[in-house]
Design a protein around this nucleic acid. Structure first.
Length: 449
RNA sequence: GGCCCUAUCGUCUAACGGUUAGGACAUCGGCUUUUCAAGCCGGUAAUCCGGGUUCGAUUCCCGGUAGGGUCACCA
């Protein structure tokens, strides 16, 4: 039996053009390339397609590189820049013209001023092209409706199709995994491959990511660049996991997966054929799940709290980290909670409104009595052991007897001054015995006057 | 419009001819330490339409419809 040694090593590519911030759709294509490459022990080549000199910007190039680093996706070679490879394209162009596969075309009618009077066109053999796509199966085209397309503006200004085919050939690319929108480019590229004597790589066209209205994902419907998600506080693990499952699935019910698990199970044949709508709610859910699995999650929450709320007591920040984790999906939510005033009662004593202290239809007298009794019970809890479960143990029996709402609501409100907050036990545990008793005293005092 | 591609709950998807069409997100309801949140339990919800093939089609074939992509001297 033939061993794998006889098979060609898998070589893939990540070829963004630095003409904009790294788009979430491109990220998914990158990821699929990465999964496939790693699974096959292949190598991935990073190539910047910057032949369009006017639209390519260094800023975008840096954005792409930073995002790659943030995702933790490593490439094996590159970055190569097409703008630095014109000599190579020139050589092929010359050969193509020599072989009569291309010719210098005198353009008769110039539709615009920017158009050249002379360009290099590919001599289309007008034939039927068929290729076997790894996700879609057989696809065929008749190239005669493509005409003699332009492959270079001049001998040292190659255009996309030429540069791609030459690079893929020179770099030994075995698998071209790209977006769906590349399908109609494929026949042109195969024609050029045949003309320069390059082998045809395996193609895999993956479906596009769509926005809610089913159009190609664009900036009109919220964030589309990876940088925006990164800045919002999403985790790379979550972005990778969500994007992996958007258009692919392992065929099991498992959804939360690590990168290694995805790589182990990935398969092009299980890639979906139809486009998929990007659902931010589900991404949020993935982020929440991955966040909870982070080994150092508590420290990261504490750091984020301290960043958003520099004046907070470090002891409180630590104590509240657990309840904060319960309420957030992304780190950015901590900032939102703060802006919504959800941390006010951890910073300073709340201003209480007298008519909100008593539970529902309870008379103020009942609230006052219950607060006094609760205070008495809490004062007996050991200060060094003043945590949620100990507090609950001490207060619970009384609360059941006197009415849970009647006891617990006034205590919770006295501690937070808010209609909504974590439960009184958790709150008391975070605030500590001293603050807790003081705040109950103030509530009692307000009810007394 | 030409060419190409696609079609299962609102969304992401499973079911490689025989299932009460499964899971997840969202949504709704319930439960728990009667506010939130989280958690747990449960509900609603889908095979685009029409023809074939077959004992039997979500699944295979054809047609329609709808959606998307692409038709640059952009990539």
């Amino acid at each position: 039996m033939l061993s794998n040694q006889h098979e060609k090593k898998v070589v893939t590519r990540f070829p963004p053009s630095p003409t904009g911030f790294l788009h979430i759709g491109r990220v998914r294509t990158l990821l699929f390339n990465y999964f496939f490459t790693k699974q096959n022990n292949g190598k991935m080549i990073f190539r910047l397609e910057d032949t369009d000199k006017t639209r390519s910007k260094k800023e975008y190039e840096n954005d792409i590189i930073e995002n790659l680093r943030w995702l933790g996706v490593e490439y094996d070679e590159g970055p190569f820049r097409q703008s630095e490879r014109t000599d190579i394209y020139k050589k092929y162009l010359k050969q193509l013209i020599h072989d009569k596969h291309a010719y210098i075309s005198k353009e008769e009618e110039l539709e615009s001023e920017t158009k050249r009077a002379e360009v290099i066109r590919f001599k289309n053999p007008n034939k039927k092209i068929t290729f076997n796509d790894a996700v879609r199966g057989e696809i065929s085209f008749d190239t005669s409706d493509l005409g003699d397309f332009v492959i270079a503006k001049s001998s040292d200004e190659p255009l996309y199709h030429l540069a791609v085919v030459v690079d893929d050939f020179e770099m030994g690319i075995t698998h071209v995994i790209r977006g769906d929108d590349g399908i109609s480019n494929t026949p042109r590229q195969i024609l050029i491959q045949e003309a320069i004597g390059a082998p045809m790589p395996t193609y895999a066209h993956i479906p596009l990511i769509l926005s809610e209205d089913r159009a190609k994902l664009s900036g009109r419907h919220g964030a589309v660049s990876l940088t925006e998600y990164r800045n919002a506080g999403y985790l790379p693990e979550a972005v990778i996991n969500y994007l992996a499952l958007l258009g692919w699935n392992p065929g099991t019910d498992q959804e939360i997966m690590t990168l290694d698990e995805i790589i182990a199970q990935f398969s092009l044949s299980k890639v979906q054929k139809a486009g998929a709508i990007f659902d931010e709610d589900k991404l949020l859910w993935f982020n929440k799940e991955h966040m909870r699995r982070l080994p150092n999650i508590q420290n990261r929450i504490i750091n984020e709290i301290a960043r958003v709320l520099p004046e907070i007591n470090p002891r409180i920040a630590e104590a509240m980290s657990e309840t904060v984790l319960d309420k957030i999906c992304i780190f950015g939510d901590i900032n939102k909670m703060n802006e919504n005033g959800e941390f006010e009662y951890f910073i300073s004593d709340p201003a209480l409104e007298k008519n909100k202290i008593a539970w529902k239809n309870d008379a103020p007298e009942i609230a006052r009595k219950n607060l006094k009794e609760s205070r008495e019970i809490l004062s007996r809890v050991d200060e060094t052991n003043f945590n949620a479960s100990a507090i609950k143990d001490s207060l619970w029996q009384y609360a059941e007897k006197a009415g849970k709402g009647s006891v617990l609501w006034p205590v919770r409100y006295a501690l937070s001054g808010k209609e909504k907050s974590p439960d009184p036990f958790v709150l008391a545990g975070i605030l500590g015995k001293k603050t807790c008793l003081e705040r109950i005293d103030s509530a009692i005092k307000i009810l007394t006057h």
